[in-house]
């Protein structure tokens, strides 16, 4: 597993909101199932002293840090305040920050990520489903029922498409080490390169499925950077130029980052690219027959 395990104490910002409350419940249900610590504290300014599913809520991250051993956080606060939450956590010394919030203005994200980098923190997201290491820890909103513990790492810019691929893998009996949704925005904290670096140091991970989308060239940069065996799938081959397909990051800009040329560049790097999600399990099996 990467980024965290059973022993990780997780903080949730935006704990008393509808989303925060709902997902604290699900994250801690998973923690109970696997014997992990799960969410140990929540933060919502002005709501200090409350409890959400038995989890104490504080006014500031620093207050929560004084009372609990916290190594990671998950952010559910609305877009206008989310960048501030990232910086507050980085400043308080949280090392892994998962930002679920979507629609954060890009300039806010750029500043928050630059600041977090200065403080030595890793930001996953924003606009992401978080991560899940089966049998260890869930930080975010991924539906835990689909996962199976194993040796394949998954990195994705999408949410539900990730679940689709995880479901396919699990049905084929191929387990996952950690599944990371890095987010669908044009500017994100941890990119494919960063997550792949972690997977390289993770003895559990033997191969990686890289799920990309149109826009940018982060998939190719990732594939180029690693020695791990990689299988890829890129969504958006039918995306017209200059139209935004849901994710702010999934836009073909001036002929750059279209799926066709992205796939061609990946294949040139020797990465097998699936033409549809249902092909992925067989490709993973072909590549590592007997290893996973």
């Amino acid at each position: 597993m990467i980024y965290g395990d059973k022993k990780s104490g997780v903080l949730v910002q935006g704990a008393t909101g509808k989303q925060g409350e709902f997902h604290i419940g699900l994250m801690n249900a998973y923690a109970r199932e696997v014997g992990g610590r799960g969410v140990v504290a929540g933060v919502t300014p002005g709501k200090g002293g409350k409890e959400v599913h038995g989890v104490p809520v504080y006014n500031t991250v620093k207050e929560a840090m004084r009372e609990h051993d916290i190594s990671a956080s998950v952010i559910f606060v609305p877009a206008a305040a989310a960048a501030d939450s990232i910086m507050e956590e980085a400043h308080a010394g949280i090392r892994t920050i998962v930002a679920i919030t979507e629609h954060i203005p890009v300039h806010d994200t750029m500043k928050a990520i630059a600041y977090a980098r200065m403080e030595g923190c890793s930001v996953i997201g924003p606009n992401c489903p978080g991560l899940l290491s089966p049998g260890e820890v869930k930080m975010g909103i991924m539906p835990a029922g689909l996962f199976l513990r194993g040796n394949v790492g998954v990195i994705s810019r999408s949410g539900t498409l990730t679940y689709e691929v995880v479901d396919e893998l699990t049905r084929a009996g191929i387990g996952q080490s950690t599944v990371v949704g890095i987010g669908g925005d044009p500017v994100i904290g941890q990119t494919f390169v960063d997550v792949l670096q972690r997977f390289e140091k993770d003895p559990q991970t033997k191969a990686v499925v890289l799920i990309g989308e149109v826009g940018g060239n982060l998939e190719e940069e990732g594939a180029k950077s690693t020695d791990l065996p990689v299988i890829s799938y890129i969504a958006g081959i039918s995306a017209p130029p200059d139209k935004r397909m849901g994710h702010a990051g999934a836009i073909v800009e001036g002929g750059e980052g279209d799926a066709g040329s992205k796939i061609a560049r990946l294949r040139k790097l020797g990465v097998p690219v699936a033409s549809r999600p249902s092909e992925i399990p067989a490709m993973v099996r072909d590549l590592f027959r007997g290893h996973c």
Binding site: S158, T160, L161, Y163, E213, S238, A239, S275, R276
Partner: peptide, 22 residues
């Protein structure tokens, strides 16, 4: 109609794969 940008995009791509037009 799909839920999530990636899954919806992927559905569009699959339509193209099987020779249709979204």
């Amino acid at each position: 109609i799909g839920n999530g940008a990636g899954l919806t995009m992927s559905t569009l791509d699959l339509i193209g794969f099987y020779g249709g037009k979204a």
